[in-house]
């Protein structure tokens, strides 16, 4: 554990808290992509299968929180707040993301075992799971401030993993190339968003695309 990873995980927790807070206080899931949320649940379920055979207090607790909160968000979006979700603006074709991640997972896992292939699938899928959400923001041309805070916190989480990987490489020669490549791609996908978030939202203006 190091400060970058801990900060990254905290940002991940914060992002989930912001999302659930936004939905329960406004009693609405408008502006949130159901498709991205469904992809995240798929990411956590396929990655954290090892809950069944490994236990570490910190990791196992976090894994359960991520799966549980993700399922709860989907429950809110399909149950109580379903009328506030507009599928007509959530139109990203996720089958290409799932298909691409599946192909990469089958071709280049660390080992050809079901658990390893699913782990690799989850790493690639996570790197692109935000795309339906970003696409939705782009289509509407603006986003609520709280939604932008959510997207920022979620992006910051994986961005902070990059210095964590550099630190681990330098201190213990830890090296997980799949995670690192996918994590860098994930952070690059956020970079446009980060820029607009920094230049607009943090200076007190509304998030609107130029």
């Amino acid at each position: 554990m190091n400060i970058f990873r801990l900060a990254g995980d905290l940002f991940h927790l914060i992002s989930i808290f912001i999302l659930i807070h936004k939905m329960t206080t406004s009693k609405s899931c408008s502006g949130i992509s159901f498709k991205s949320q469904a992809l995240y649940l798929l990411v956590y379920v396929t990655r954290y299968l090892d809950l069944f055979w490994t236990f570490a207090l910190y990791n196992s607790t976090m894994k359960i929180i991520f799966i549980g909160s993700s399922a709860y968000v989907l429950h809110l979006m399909t149950g109580p707040f379903k009328p506030t979700h507009d599928p007509n603006i959530d139109t990203f074709k996720v089958r290409y993301l799932i298909g691409g991640a599946a192909i990469l997972a089958l071709l280049f896992p660390y080992k050809w075992t079901p658990a390893e292939v699913l782990w690799t699938f989850s790493i690639w899928l996570e790197s692109v799971a935000i795309l339906p959400q970003l696409f939705m923001v782009q289509r509407t041309g603006a986003a609520e401030t709280i939604t932008t805070h959510y997207i920022f916190a979620l992006g910051a989480y994986r961005a902070l993993y990059i210095p964590n990987w550099i630190y681990r490489y330098l201190t213990s020669t830890f090296w997980d190339p799949l995670s690192i490549i996918a994590g860098v791609i994930q952070t690059v996908l956020y970079s446009d968003f980060f820029y607009i978030y920094y230049t607009k939202v943090l200076q007190g203006r509304k998030f609107e695309l130029p």
């Binding site: 990873r5 090892d50 570490a56 990791n59 080992k111 830890f174 090296w175 995670s179």
Partner: peptide
């Protein structure tokens, strides 16, 4: 450095 797919991260 050999790959260490320890999966000890989240």
């Amino acid at each position: 450095v050999t790959p260490v797919p320890g999966h000890d991260e989240l």
